[in-house]
Simulated assay, not measured.
Amino acid sequence: MNNRTFYNEVLTEHNLHPAHKHELENANMTCEGLNPSCGDDIWVHLDVDDNGIIQKGAFEGDGCAISQASADMMFDLIIGKTKEEALRLADLFLKMIKEGHLSDEEMDELEEAASLQDIAHMPARVKCAVLGWHTLKEMLTGETDQANPQPVSTENH
């Protein structure tokens, strides 16, 4: 199966049947990400335990197929990981989109999210693909990505 077909199948499946798009009761971290250029709006919710392990995660909001599918793939990767591991995965994903490539080992770490690699060559869709990942990163670090500033409000309970 060629990469384009795999990309389309994965994107469609995560967009039409997102496993992680729902309200998350008892979330202790919540952050909103907004892409003002297209109107995509996402709320990222996490339940992180005292050891810094992401026990549960979900998202809510509206956006294009790419933003919604990318966020769903992100949660597939980060649930069960520490905050530090989740940040590393976010950095890998953002590097893949920004630079258009990663090592084979890094691509393997991203699992299905690696199928979005070609978005690096679609400038109009880059902000869609990275919205959830930037929101996660800002929530976990408290830092705004100055290269891609987006209005984001964070609420930690």
Rank of each mutant, 00 (worst) to 15 (best):
N156T: 12
D40E: 10
D145Y: 15
A113G: 07
G52E: 11
H17G: 03
E138R: 15
H14I: 04
M74F: 13
L92W: 10
E138H: 15
A58N: 05
M107T: 15
F59W: 04
Y7N: 06
E13A: 11
I78D: 04
T12E: 08
L11H: 01
S153P: 00
F93C: 01
D72W: 14
S70M: 09
D41A: 12
S67T: 13
A124D: 12
Q68M: 14
H45N: 09
L77A: 05
H101M: 11
D91N: 07
K137D: 01
P36N: 12
G52Y: 09
N15V: 08
S70G: 07
D41C: 06
A65F: 09
V10H: 03
E9Y: 00
N3R: 14
M139C: 11
N2W: 00
H101W: 00
K95L: 10
L77S: 12
G52R: 03
H157A: 08
L92C: 03
M122N: 00
L110I: 05
E143D: 15
S153N: 13
A147Y: 02
D49M: 13
A124V: 13
E106Y: 10
I66F: 03
E109K: 14
H17R: 11
E109R: 08
P149T: 14
L24K: 02
A86T: 09
L24S: 04
M74A: 11
I54R: 07
R4K: 12
L77T: 14
A129C: 10
S103R: 08
D118F: 08
D72R: 14
T12H: 01
R125V: 06
D118H: 11
L94Q: 10
T12C: 03
D41K: 12
P151T: 07
H20K: 05
E23D: 08
E32D: 05
E23G: 00
H20Q: 02
A147V: 06
V152G: 13
V152D: 00
E109T: 08
M122K: 06
N35D: 15
L116Y: 01
A114I: 08
P123C: 00
H134P: 01
E111A: 14
K137T: 13
T5Q: 14
T5I: 14
E23N: 07
E13R: 11
E13D: 12
V10N: 01
D108F: 06
E109V: 04
W133D: 12
H101L: 09
Y7H: 06
L140K: 03
S67D: 04
G39V: 02
L140N: 03
I54N: 05
N156C: 09
E23L: 09
M29Q: 06
E84S: 05
D76T: 13
M107G: 13
K21N: 10
T135S: 07
H20A: 00
C128F: 03
T141F: 01
H22S: 06
L16A: 05
P151F: 03
D76N: 15
T135R: 03
P36H: 11
L131V: 10
M73N: 09
D62R: 08
S115T: 14
E138Q: 15
E143G: 08
A124E: 09
L77D: 14
G100W: 03
V44W: 00
E13V: 09
